[in-house]
Design a protein around this nucleic acid. Sequence first.
DNA 1: GGAGTGATACTCGGATATCTGGTGTCCGAGTTTTCGCGG
DNA 2: CCGCGAAAACTCGGACACCAGATATCCGAGTATCACTCC
Lengths: 162, 162
Amino acid sequence: MRLSDGVEWGLHCGVLLGFAGPDGALPTAKLAEYHGVPAAYLAKHLQAMSRAGLLESVQGPKGGYRLARPADQITVLDVVEAIDGEEPAFRCAEIRRRGPTARPAREYKSMCAIHVVMNQADAAWRDELRRSTLADLMVGAIEGAPPKGLEVGVRWMAEAVR
Amino acid sequence: MRLSDGVEWGLHCGVLLGFAGPDGALPTAKLAEYHGVPAAYLAKHLQAMSRAGLLESVQGPKGGYRLARPADQITVLDVVEAIDGEEPAFRCAEIRRRGPTARPAREYKSMCAIHVVMNQADAAWRDELRRSTLADLMVGAIEGAPPKGLEVGVRWMAEAVR
DNA sequence: GGAGTGATACTCGGATATCTGGTGTCCGAGTTTTCGCGG
DNA sequence: CCGCGAAAACTCGGACACCAGATATCCGAGTATCACTCC
């Protein structure tokens, strides 16, 4: 079980767009340059976030992406589900209904016990991701970044933001 | 992000081996027949569980697999990690250290905030899976199964178990 | 000087190749059973 | 009838193809900008 790399990229882009402010747009090329990732592939994930309603796109020159809502109203789970999809990691194949003991589906009253446990774990995972927002990550990014890097970042942003 | 189908198979096999008792072994072919899955592929996952120390293998005629410990001492997490691997779903690529703001690694004092959140979610997921054991699943399997199916299953087991 | 207009340049969006990891399969090594034989 | 031994059959274990989904890329549709022209 492996989470797509695009999730990490999308989160970092969300944080950077949070710093760009509610009216500051950044195009795909700039976002890719800042994070050192291939722009063409990053575009795919930004589109997914746009479709999910997390980002707004602005066409034409001086265009780009901006956050569709304040950073404290976008959870980490929102980004993960936008890029990775909303379906749970575990999908019950109902193999208890196969083989020699198989019975008609209507005779199975309760959900498969394995399915229940997996759903609970999945819910716990999502709950944890829902507890953090992009605003929280922005705070963490500032605290964890080296002073020199922050300084360069601020200058870079002043030049890149629209 | 998708969990391998083999995890579901491994859990069902673990439950069935739990019903077989501490000395009752079942070969791959029987386990596959009971669950209606391809035996050759199921073998791959049973081997993984054996390597992880969850199952004991018995060679030769009348051989097969049995649980290496009592069912209440094998957690769902044990099975998941045996088959799916122990590494977390999210792996931080440290892309914050790339691009124009990059600094030497030693200047980054704290862990990437995104990495922290992902690790917490991963831990919550694993904690939840650790709370249930094969013994719990056995109870759930009996309660959730149709009476007719249970009856057939008991007869099948009496004939198949070694 | 100001407004209108056309060309331009830049943006996103979806459709298209490539490649890694899960899916599925096979045959060889090893061990227990079992059958036959001799005492 | 009992013990011994060799062959056989059945088991697991790891090595080998195949395919779906993630990875990576490109070109076309659309729009705000900007320069130029005309009033």
